[in-house]
Amino acid sequence: MIKLEGIQKSYGLGKQKLHVLKGLDITIDKGEFVSIMGSSGSGKSTLLNILGILDKYDDGNYFLADTLIKNLSEKKAAYYRNRFLGFVFQSFNLLAFKNATENVALPLYYQKVSRRKRNDIALEYLDMVGLKDWATHMPSELSGGQKQRVAIARALISDPKVILADEPTGALDTKTSYDVMEIFKRVNDAGKTIVVVTHEHDIAAMTKRNIVLKDGFVVDEIMKSSELEVGSIES
């Protein structure tokens, strides 16, 4: 589903140049539930940006669902983000002036689905994350866990190839975090590919595969508790 070949990325120019990703090769198959870990500066955010088609890379190839994601126009990038990817953010990023249903329906708005139809679909997905009764509530009336569930429903509504979650439990307490991970697990069980970026090893432990980054390389694909301790303290 995701195939990275020798991905390189650096920021800045000349002496200030910062080589962040130094040739990543990662393959994630369909239906995998992967966590990406690493300390701050390890390049995991940069990797997430590239996976999410939010940023460009300098060298290598990135295939998403067998489509080469390289040198895309803004419009094309927007199209692929909309069709292939579902995002879940640490700070939920719900639009304050839209109710739960409208927030969930937003990706379909950009697919030019009619208002009535996308709101109907949104309601189904809200039901799926157990928030049907909250459909008309505004984000300010929802708890953190509820907001993140709305965000997950929003990520799922376009039936994307991959769900990308950036520290999805970063703003939640432990219990709520586990609830959210439970939903991810269910979604994964239904066959969806999920990539979670996190620095919390208990969260990473709930995924089926861990990829650990350090200094722009994949250092391990098996969790090492010592490194994770360091990572969690640094970030």
Partner: peptide
């Protein structure tokens, strides 16, 4: 700005 970023991540085109 943040909202626009979110919209773009969800697939908003520059024209929209």
């Amino acid at each position: 700005t943040k909202e626009v970023g979110v919209r773009k991540a969800l697939g908003a085109t520059p024209n929209s």
